[in-house]
Computed example of a mutant assay.
Amino acid sequence: MELYDVEEFWKFDMRVGLVKKAEKLKRTRKLIRLDVDFGSEERTIITGIADQYNPEDLEGKKFIFVLNLKPKKFSGVESQGMLLVAETEDGKVYLIPVPEEVPVGTKVW
């Protein structure tokens, strides 16, 4: 395992976001488009977990997202961040829910 200085960690802007809408991207097997509210802004984020979760599993729930990544296009849709999940060595993905009382937009560290 490679070790990093804690200063590298602080470069990431991780925030609590509320998934307002989630839908599977057409002609894809794993991609879900999320419309996420961060309080001061809304962003579109693409996540590759549709083989294990339905869009309905995400809507109306809060999760942690990384916001300061370079935008990337998936199936013609630009993703403006990344959903954080837990994944086992065999590829099982687990959503990491955020308690309801945590405000949208809260910084995570």
Rank of each mutant, 00 (worst) to 15 (best):
T47I: 08
M82F: 12
L69P: 01
K73A: 14
G48H: 01
D35Q: 06
E59G: 12
I32G: 03
P103F: 03
G17N: 09
F74E: 07
G105S: 12
A86M: 12
V85I: 15
D5E: 14
V108L: 06
G76Y: 07
K62C: 00
G81R: 13
I49T: 04
V108E: 00
D13M: 08
L69F: 06
S40C: 04
T28E: 06
L69I: 14
V98S: 07
R29D: 15
W109N: 11
R15V: 09
G60M: 11
T28C: 08
M1F: 08
P103Q: 04
K24Y: 03
R15W: 07
I46K: 01
K21W: 04
F65N: 02
I96G: 03
G81E: 13
T28S: 12
V66D: 03
V77Y: 03
T47C: 13
K30T: 12
K72H: 05
D51M: 03
W109G: 10
W10M: 14
L58C: 11
L34V: 09
R27T: 07
V102I: 14
V19F: 12
T88S: 15
P71D: 08
L67E: 03
V77E: 11
G81A: 14
E56L: 12
V108D: 00
L34S: 05
D35Y: 05
I32K: 02
F12T: 11
V108M: 06
F9Y: 14
K62I: 01
P55S: 12
T44F: 05
L31N: 00
E42H: 10
G60L: 11
L67W: 04
E23V: 07
D35S: 10
I64L: 01
E78C: 06
G39I: 07
T44Q: 11
L69D: 06
L18K: 13
R33P: 05
K24H: 09
V66A: 14
K11P: 07
L84V: 15
R33S: 06
S79R: 08
R15S: 13
V108G: 00
V98D: 04
L95Y: 02
V66C: 06
R43M: 09
K107M: 04
I45M: 12
T106I: 04
V104C: 05
M1L: 10
V19S: 08
R27P: 01
K107D: 05
R33Q: 14
Y94L: 04
E101F: 10
P55Q: 11
Q80R: 15
K92L: 00
D90R: 01
V19K: 09
K30D: 09
L58Q: 08
V6W: 13
G76E: 10
E100H: 09
E2F: 14
K107P: 00
V108A: 02
G76R: 07
G81L: 14
Q80G: 03
V36S: 06
I45E: 08
N54A: 15
L31M: 09
D37T: 02
E8F: 15
